[in-house]
Amino acid sequence: MTIDFGLDRLQGARIVVAMSGGVDSSVAAALAARTGAEVVGVTLQLYDHGEAVKRSGSCCAGQDIYDAAQVADRLGIAHYVLDYESRFRSGVIDRFAEEYAQGRTPIPCALCNQGVKFVDLIAFARELGADCLATGHYVRRTVRNGRAELHRGKDPRRDQSYFLYGTTRDQLDFLRFPLGDLPKDAVRELALEAGLAVAAKPDSQDICFVPDGDYASLVKKLRPETDVPGEIVDLEGRTLGEHRGVVHFTVGQRRGIEIGGSPEPLYVVRIEPDTRRLVVGPRSALAIQRMRVEELSWLGEDQRDVSVKVRSLAPAVSARIEDDGWVCFATPEYGVAPGQAAVFYDGTRVLGGGWIAETLAADPRVSCAAAA
Rank of each mutant, 00 (worst) to 15 (best):
R283I: 15
L278A: 13
I271V: 15
L82Q: 10
D83P: 05
W326K: 02
V269T: 13
Q70G: 06
Q114A: 14
Q160F: 03
R74P: 02
L360S: 04
E98A: 09
R283D: 15
A186T: 07
V27Q: 00
N113S: 08
R152M: 06
R158N: 15
A29I: 03
F88A: 05
C59Y: 02
G339S: 08
A72I: 02
E242P: 11
R277I: 12
E258T: 14
D302E: 15
D120T: 06
V42K: 05
S367W: 05
P265Y: 10
A69L: 02
S297V: 15
P183C: 12
A72D: 04
V42M: 02
G50Y: 06
V81P: 07
A101C: 12
G354V: 04
P156N: 13
Q70K: 05
E231F: 01
T275Q: 11
V53M: 06
A341R: 08
S58L: 03
P108A: 10
D305N: 09
E231M: 08
G353I: 06
A97H: 10
D94S: 12
T167Y: 02
L182Q: 01
Q205G: 14
V251S: 03
P265V: 13
D274E: 15
A314K: 12
E333Q: 11
F329T: 03
R292I: 02
G22V: 02
S367H: 08
V336P: 03
A69F: 00
R147E: 12
A199F: 09
D120K: 04
R141N: 12
R141L: 14
S262M: 07
Y267C: 09
W298E: 14
V187Y: 00
A30S: 08
P315L: 07
S20A: 06
L75P: 03
R176F: 06
A285C: 15
R126D: 10
A13I: 12
S284P: 14
D274K: 14
V27N: 00
R152F: 01
P282L: 11
R255H: 11
A33K: 05
R292W: 05
I122M: 07
L111C: 09
R255E: 13
V327G: 04
G62M: 00
R14L: 07
V269W: 11
V71K: 00
G300S: 13
G335A: 05
Y100Q: 08
P364I: 08
T35S: 11
K221C: 13
R147W: 11
L360G: 01
Q45R: 10
A148K: 05
K154V: 14
A357S: 05
L46I: 10
W355H: 06
Q102D: 10
I321G: 03
S25D: 00
A61K: 01
I259S: 07
R176D: 10
L175N: 04
I3Y: 11
S204C: 12
A30R: 00
D67K: 01
S312V: 12
V16Q: 04
F177T: 04
A37S: 12
G103F: 03
L75V: 05
L10N: 14
I122S: 09
Y47N: 13
R188P: 03
W355R: 02
G213R: 11
A371C: 13
F124S: 03
A370M: 05
